[in-house]
Nucleic acid binder design. Structure first.
Lengths: 211, 211, 211, 211
DNA sequence: CATGAATGAGCCTTCATTCAT
DNA sequence: TATGAATGAAGGCTCATTCAT
C-alpha cells in the first residue's frame, strides 16, 4: 500500500526518534531490534531506512542531539552568572532538573557511548568534555577566589557530576520529594562538599604524599 | 585428543569466567558472542555449555558473585566500627578501593542489570539494597547522633554511592594520583557533604514546602 | 515543483535507457538497482515506472532493440553483395566495427540473456539466430562454390562469431591498433581459417570417424 | 538437531562446492541465493558459514581453483612439446577438451569475474594472463621460426582463445559431433588461421598505416 | 572433556514495486 | 510528470544452542 492518508514524513521521523529513545532506554541499543522499533511506530522494518542510514546512525543522532542540547541549555543557563558560588548552584540545579526531565536521553547518552563507532564516540566525548568544563572552570575560579576548598578540581568535577547524574538511577516523577526539594538536597551536598574543611585536609594529604 | 596433562575443569571454568568478565566489560553482554568467549579460552562454543547452562546464567553468576563478594567484604570491613563518622569513612574508603581494583566487575554489575532476567535481576537488586543499607544506616545513626546534618538519608545514600562509584568512569591505574590520594579526596567530599551547614538548609526547605 | 522548462518525457526515457545500458554493463543486471538507475537520471526510483513496466522489461527493451539494430544494420551492409568471399569479409568487418563501437550493448546482449524471462529470451535468441544465419548461409554458399573449405558450416559459424565477438573482452578505444587494423587482422584470421587446407582434413577426419 | 548420522564435513563441503557451481552456472552469482544453495545440499542457510566465510569467497574459491587447475593441466599437457605447431595443436586440443568437460566452471570463471572483489579479481586475472601466455609464447615462437604468419601475436592469442572458448556457448554432450571431431574442426580453423596468407596481408596493412 | 556439524530463529539491510498526492 | 512514503519479500549473515561422537 502506498502512503496512508494523512501520514507525514516529519511526523513519522519524530515518532521513530521517540520510540527509539524509549526502546534503547528500556532494552539497550544492542538488544533493541529494528523490527521492534518499526512495530512501535507501525511500519515495516525496511521502511525505517527512509529515516536513517543504519541502526548506528540512529543511536548517534539521538546521543549527539542530546549532548548538544544539554550543552547549549547549560551555557544559556549560566550565561551572565559570574560569581563562582552562584554558578555552581546554577549548574547543579540545571543538571539535576535536566536529568530528571530527560532521563531516558541522559541514560542512553551515558550507557550507550560504548556502542558508538569510534568516530561517533569521539564526537560525543568531545561534547561531554565541553560540558564538564563548565563545572571544572567554575570550581577552579572558586578555588582561586578562596570561596571553594578543593584539592583537585578535575576529580571534584567528576565526583560532582557522577553524584548529580546518579539521580537518574532512582528518581521517578510523582515520588515523595519534589524536583525542587531534590535540587535543594543535592545542591546542598555539593556546596558543602566543596566548601568544607576536608578539602584542605585532602590537599595537605596530597602534598605530604608528594614530599 | 586426550586430556591435556594437568588441565581440569575447574581451571577452564575459571578461565571462562575471567574471559567473560573481560569481554562483557569491553563489549557489553549483548554484544559479546559466545564464539568470542570460546575463542578466548581456546574452546569450541558448544563446549562452553559444560560450564554454564546458557549465556544468561553466565552473566548472572558473574554479577551475583560480585555483589555477594562486595557485600561480604564491606560487612567485614565495617565490623566492629560503631562510631558513625568512622563507619562513614571506612565505607567510603572500602567502596573506592574495591571499585578501583575490580572495575570490570563493578562496571558489569552496574551496567548489565538491565540484561538480567526478571528473577535474576530481583536477586541482584536485593543484594545491592543490602549493600546500600550499610551506608544508609550509618547516615541515619550519624544524623540521630547529631554528627551528620542530613535532610534525607536515603537521598544522601544514593548521592554518595553514585559519586564514589563514578570513579570507575575515569580512574586508570598508574595515573597521577595514587589510590590513597583519591580515597582522601573523595572521602573529604563525602564527609564535608554530610557535615556542612547546607544539610540543614535543605531540611528547612523541605519542611517549609510541606507546610 | 513544476516541470523543468524544456524537459520532456522522450528525453528522460532516453536518459534512462542510456543510464541503464551503462549500469548493466558495469555492474550486471542483477547487481544494478533501480535506485542507482534513478539517481543517475535524477529521479526517484518510483518515478521510473512511468517509463517501463518493470526492471525485466527495461533489460528486454535494451537487448531486443540492440539485437534488432544489429540485425538490421548487418542486413543493410550485406545487401547487394553476392560473392561469398566478399560477404564474409563484409560480415566480419561489420561485426567487428559494430562491436567495437557499441561494446556495452553487445556485452549486455551476450551476458544477460540468462537474466531474461523465458519468453523474452526466446525472442532474443530468435533474433540472434537470424543474425548468425547471415554468416552461416554465406559459409554454406562459399563452401558449395568451392571457395571455402569448411567441414561444418554451423560449427564454423559459432567459432567465427565467438572469435570476432571476443574483441569486446579487451579492445579499448585509443589503443595501439586502430579499428581498421584490427578489422584487417581479425578478418585475415577468418579468411585463412575458412580457406586453409585443414578444413578438408577435418572433414576427412569426420568421415573416417563415421565409417 | 545435531549431526545427522553419517554426515561428514568433507562430504558436505564438496556437496556445497558442486551445488555452488551448478547454481551459479544456472542463475549467475548475483541471482543465486544462499538459501537456494543451502536447500540444494539439505542445510539451513546459516550452516553454510561453516564452509566458507561469505558468499564472495565461495565464488572466489570456485574460480581460483578452476583457474589454477586449468593452468596446471595445460602446463602438464604442453610439457616436453617444443615444436610450435605441435604446441599450438596441443593447446587447442587441451583447451577444447577441458572446456567441453568442465563447461560450468569455465562459464563461471569467464562470466563472474565481474562479481569478484578487486583483489580477488586481480588474482584471477593474473592466473588467466599466465594461461594466455602459454599460447602467446607459442605463437611468437612459431612466427619467429617462420612456421606461423601472424601480424599481432597478442591479438591472435585473444582471437584464438575466444574462438575456442566459445564452444561452451553451444556444445552439449551427446550431440551429433564427438569431442574428437570438434577438436579437429576447431583446431583446423586455428591452424589455418595462423598459417594462411592473410596473416602477411594484415602485417603489410599495418606497416602501411604506420608509414 | 571436548569437538564439530547442524539448527532455527533472528538480525540489519536492500530491493522492486505501488500509489495517493 | 514526478514525488515520497510505504510495502512485503528476500537477501547475506550471526547467534545461542543442541547433541552424536
Amino acid at each position: 500500500m502506498a502512503r496512508t492518508i494523512g501520514s507525514n514524513g516529519a511526523r513519522t521521523a519524530e515518532a521513530i526518534r521517540q520510540a527509539g529513545v524509549t526502546l534503547i532506554y528500556r532494552h539497550g541499543y544492542e538488544a533493541m531490534s529494528l523490527r521492534q522499533l518499526a512495530a512501535e511506530v507501525g511500519l515495516q522494518s525496511g521502511s525505517l531506512y527512509k529515516y536513517f542510514d543504519n541502526k548506528q546512525s540512529l543511536l548517534f543522532d539521538i546521543v549527539r542531539e542530546h549532548m548538544a542540547d544539554l550543552l547549549a541549555k547549560a551555557e544559556a543557563d549560566l550565561a551572565g552568572i559570574d560569581d563562582p558560588m552562584a554558578r555552581l548552584k546554577a549548574f547543579s540545579a540545571f543538571h539535576l532538573r535536566y536529568h530528571m526531565q530527560r532521563m531516558a536521553h541522559v541514560f542512553i547518552a551515558n550507557m550507550e557511548i560504548r556502542s558508538l563507532d569510534d568516530d561517533h564516540r569521539a564526537m560525543v566525548v568531545g561534547l561531554r568534555r565541553r560540558y564538564e568544563n563548565l563545572l571544572e572552570d567554575t570550581l577552579r575560579a572558586g578555588a582561586q577566589a578562596g570561596v571553594f576548598r578543593i584539592a583537585e578540581p578535575k576529580v571534584a568535577t567528576y565526583a560532582i557530576i557522577s553524584m548529580l547524574t546518579g539521580i537518574c538511577m532512582w528518581y521517578r516523577p510523582g515520588g515523595r520529594l519534589s524536583q525542587d526539594q531534590l535540587v535543594d538536597i543535592y545542591t546542598g551536598l555539593v556546596v558543602d562538599g566543596v566548601t568544607g574543611p576536608q578539602g584542605l585536609t585532602a590537599a595537605a594529604e596530597r602534598h605530604r604524599a608528594l614530599a
